[in-house]
């Protein structure tokens, strides 16, 4: 069963602003990255998935349920971590997460147990009894994640979970999300405007821009075919290019570099052989893993 499926999903706000335009996408369970610039429609999509906003037209299914007609059943199985500050400063994390667990329908004692478990999983221990107002940004983000986890959802919707964190905090948060998605058996949709960040932990990537789908695919499908070798020689670049072309290797020029698609390990040998035969000074030869960003780089930016 698909985790999330939309069909021609369109959302137009009053005043004529189109947030989502004819979005059709199907994602399978796992860690899903939803990337797009600010204003691309990520938050609107999340609100529609939660049944908080009705779509203008089109179909949407979350965990096989329709959030427009069964919002309660969807929300019971989904955990949501909002982008913005969302914690009352005067309550302790333990008390607050317990309370929200009860709002999700957990019995009192279960809510308390699961709250401290959830807080432990995100890495908050004794500090959970202190008021949230005194927490660092990183700790607050963890509490927000814990409250999304407390009722044991089947799907987590995380809106910019690394917002406001320093590099170390970002790495820790991404590692945590990766653990939730792989070890806990919970599917995760991570929203981010930073492609380089989500591509490290995602199985599937959905890119939207201006409310339209750019691309949705499994991340290995996106990157595996695009590994290339970068070859740089101090002189004789033209000769080498001609020689490699004669060896039926697909070669591209990029400045002083020659880019050769990496088919298998023989490619290395062929290139080294060619360089040796021509007696050229080899500057460097390294494998370049295409960043997913390059897959979108050719698109014109739709707005500035």
């Amino acid at each position: 069963m698909a985790l999330i499926a939309t069909e021609s999903l369109t959302k137009t706000y009053r005043g004529g602003v189109t947030a989502l335009a004819d979005l059709t996408v199907v994602v399978e369970p796992g860690i899903v990255g939803l990337v797009g610039a600010n204003g691309a429609g990520k938050s609107t999509l999340i609100k529609i998935l939660l049944g908080l906003l009705p779509p203008t037209s089109g179909q949407v299914r979350v965990l096989g349920l329709d959030p427009t007609t069964q919002p309660d059943r969807v929300r019971a199985r989904v955990g949501y971590m909002p982008e913005h500050e969302a914690l009352p400063p005067d309550l302790s994390a333990a008390e607050f997460v317990t309370h929200l667990g009860r709002i999700s329908g957990l019995p009192r004692t279960v809510a308390r147990e699961r709250a401290s478990e959830a807080l432990r999983h995100v890495g908050l221990y004794e500090e959970r009894y202190r008021p949230v107002g005194g927490y660092s940004t990183g700790m607050k983000q963890r509490v927000k994640l814990a409250q999304a986890l407390v009722h044991d959802p089947d799907l987590l919707l995380l809106d910019e979970p690394t917002n406001g964190l320093d590099p170390a905090g970002r790495d820790a948060m991404l590692a945590l999300i990766h653990r939730i998605g792989t070890e806990f058996g919970i599917s995760v949709l991570v929203c981010s405007h930073l492609l380089g960040e989500v591509e490290r932990i995602c199985h599937t990537l959905v890119a939207i821009d201006g409310g339209r789908l750019l691309r949705a695919d499994r991340i290995d499908a996106m990157t595996s075919a695009t590994d290339v070798l970068a070859v740089e020689v101090s002189e004789g670049t033209e000769e080498l290019a001609a020689r490699l072309a004669a060896l039926r290797l697909p070669v591209r020029r990029e400045g002083r570099l020659l880019l050769v698609e990496l088919a298998d390990d023989d490619t290395y040998d062929q290139i080294l052989g060619a360089v040796a035969e021509l007696d050229l000074p080899l500057h460097r030869l390294d494998q370049r893993r295409h960043r997913v960003a390059e897959l979108f780089a050719t698109r014109e930016p739709s707005h500035v």
Binding site: D72, R75, Y80, P82, A86, L87, P88, L100, S104, Q147
Partner: peptide, 18 residues
């Protein structure tokens, strides 16, 4: 007012609460 201010409401309304 406190809940409006601190942005807690999305956490309530994303739960199965009418």
């Amino acid at each position: 007012s406190r809940d409006l201010r601190s942005g807690v409401l999305p956490l309530y309304f994303s739960r199965p609460l009418a």
